[in-house]
Each structure stands twice: as C-alpha cells, then as structure tokens.
C-alpha cells in the first residue's frame, strides 16, 4: 500500500501538477515519503525499502539508478545521524527534518553528480531553492497523511518497534 501511495505521489508530481500549475515545481512528495520512512521505520528495513523506492523512481525519470541510490543513501545516513542526536518528535520536527533532508538531497545530488556522472548537472540554484521551500511548505499537511497511513497500515507492535519509540521505551 505504501508503494502504491508512492506511485500515486510520483504520478501526481509528473502528470497532474505540471498540467495545472506548470510555472511552479510540484512538491516532491516521494522525497517527503522517503524522509518519513527514514525517520519512523527501523533503519535496516527502511534502507532496503528506500532502495526499492529509488528503483521505482527511475520509472518516472531519466535519473540513473546510481545517482538516485547514492543520493538517497547519503540523505538517509545524514538524516539518521542527525535524528539520533536531536530529541524531537511530532509534526514540527518532521517539517524541520524535511527541510534538512531536502537540502541534503539537493546538495548531495549536485556533489555526487560532479563525482559520478560524465555529464554532471548544473547548479540551478534558484530552482533547487524553490523546490526545497515547496517541500518544506507541503511537509506539514503531508505529515498527518503519512502518520494516518502509517498507523492504519501497520500494527501497533510494529509501530512501537520504530527507532524513535525504542529510544523512548529505553
């Protein structure tokens, strides 16, 4: 179901949003979803699931698999490190993590593109900044959708096994 939702989010961004509001980039709900998984799910399961979602992403873009996997791994690792050092929870923490995660993803993508790709991407500073801002704005309402989705799909025991809860229990 989560994968289905992921596909819907990608379809929304590629085929729905550009036809309605072509002058503003659509929110990267797929990235917010990956950030949510990074923050909420157990790290081992999360990283493999994120790799799977990264593969799914290549169906909607010309992005090479090496680029998306390496960018997502970088984002996942840095976000996990930050998360383990900052004791915050709830919607407010999620939007802050989304802001940080979006910045890490965009910067990481540019850096990794310079290192890995033969034809590296350009900086496109304003485009990236706008994208980060849009992700940040949309992260707040989307958090509640993800939260509801996550809680209604997973059993409470599974939910309580997420790293955040584990720390709380300890």
């Amino acid at each position: 179901m989560f994968t289905m939702f992921f596909f819907l989010a990608c379809g929304f961004q590629t085929s729905f949003w550009p036809h309605l509001i072509p002058w503003i980039p659509g929110p990267q709900i797929w990235l917010l979803m990956i950030l949510f998984i990074t923050l909420k799910w157990s790290p081992l399961f999360a990283i493999f699931y994120i790799y799977f979602l990264g593969f799914c992403l290549t169906r909607f873009s010309h992005i090479p698999l090496k680029m998306i996997w390496s960018s997502l791994l970088l984002t996942f690792t840095l976000l996990l490190i930050i998360k383990n050092r900052v004791q915050m929870s709830g919607a407010f923490s999620f939007i802050l993590f989304c802001l940080g995660g979006s910045v890490i993803f965009q910067v990481g993508y540019v850096v990794l593109s310079q290192l890995i790709e033969h034809t590296p991407t350009t900086l496109m500073f304003l485009d990236r900044l706008l994208q980060i801002l849009i992700n940040f704005i949309f992260s707040y309402p989307i958090y509640f959708v993800f939260e509801w989705f996550d809680e209604s799909l997973f059993k409470k025991e599974d939910w309580s096994r997420s790293p955040e809860k584990q720390e709380f229990e300890v």
């Binding site: 990608c10 379809g11 961004q13 590629t14 085929s15 550009p18 980039p25 990267q28 797929w30 992403l57 909607f60 873009s61 010309h62 992005i63 993508y109 593109s113 991407t121 496109m124 485009d127 990236r128 994208q131």
Partner: peptide, 14 residues
C-alpha cells in the same frame, strides 16, 4: 504529452 520528469535535473517528457 502526459507527464514531465520527476527530478528537475533531467529534461524528459512522457
């Protein structure tokens, strides 16, 4: 044209 690229770094259409 039914779709655009998911990532702004690539210019493709579907």
């Amino acid at each position: 044209v039914v779709g655009r690229d998911l990532v702004p770094d690539h210019n493709t259409i579907t």
